[in-house]
Design a protein around this nucleic acid. Structure first.
Length: 256
DNA sequence: ATGGTCGTGTAACGA
């Protein structure tokens, strides 16, 4: 399961409740929006432990923040990219770990803000470093999280409107496609090929009801992992709940 | 074409 929770403090109860109901082996969280110290003090780790989950978190301040929860082992934790993470790569956007022989990465890509913003250029550079990192590794990977890119027009409720916004530009799409070029497969699209499949809906009124969403949360799998995926589903009920994140959980069922 | 809402060092800012 992968889920941008938009603040673990705001979503603490909903996340624990979701884990209790669905019992995923591995949960990849994004946008915890807190430092490691605040995360450790908030009681979330204890609540996870009571459900049998080990937890690894990477957070530096009140922005970004990523985590991996696992009840099938959690070793070789890597916070940030391998090697130096000098600014702006010091933002907490990536954490990796090995769980039950699977190398999983929870990622929160830069938003980009606007096509004219320097943050947009950082987004493209960040994706290139991600690609190089995966290309250099030998493990079986599941790379999941908030990519902040809608890979095709099918992933946007109104592609024309989004043509002048970030998340849909050709360079952003090329950055995601480059991950496909090194063998990673977008398993959501393999299992859910239809239009109207989204993972994010704005908090603004009426967006959820009209299914005005984007598919920007992805699970990219290396071939051995992708071949194990039996089902992919998106928990829209969670997004429609009171006090929900603006992102829905993205769930993969893997064969043993 | 604009604005609508959430989240975060309660004040702009980020998404």
């Amino acid at each position: 399961m992968s889920w941008n929770v938009n603040s673990i403090r705001a979503r603490h109860g909903r996340v624990i409740d979701w884990l209790r109901r669905h019992e995923p082996d591995i949960a990849l969280l994004q946008e915890t929006k807190c430092s490691d110290a605040v995360f450790a003090a908030g009681g979330f780790v204890d609540d996870c432990a009571a459900l049998g989950y080990a937890v690894a978190h990477h957070g530096r301040d009140h922005w970004n923040g990523v985590a991996i929860l696992s009840r099938v082992g959690l070793v070789d934790v890597c916070r940030g990219f391998p090697g130096p993470n000098r600014p702006p790569f010091d933002e907490a956007r990536l954490i990796g770990a090995t769980c039950a022989g699977l190398r999983v990465w929870s990622l929160y890509a830069p938003n980009g803000r606007t096509l004219a913003d320097s943050h947009y250029l950082f987004k493209l550079v960040w994706f290139e470093r991600l690609r190089a990192t995966v290309a250099a590794a030998a493990d079986v990977h599941v790379l999941a999280g908030d990519f902040n890119v809608a890979p095709t027009d099918l992933d946007i409720y109104d592609p024309v409107r989004w043509r002048r916004l970030t998340h849909a530009s050709p360079p952003e799409r090329a950055a995601v496609a480059a991950l496909g070029d090194i063998g990673l497969r977008d398993v959501t699209r393999e299992h859910l090929p239809d239009a109207g499949v989204f993972t994010w809906w704005s908090y603004r009124p009426g967006q959820v009801e009209r299914n005005n969403g984007l598919r920007i949360d992805l699970a990219l799998c290396s071939p051995p992992a992708a071949d194990r995926v039996q089902r992919v589903w998106i928990d829209g009920d969670e997004r429609r709940a009171v006090l929900a994140s603006d992102h829905a959980p993205l769930v993969l069922d893997l064969a043993d």
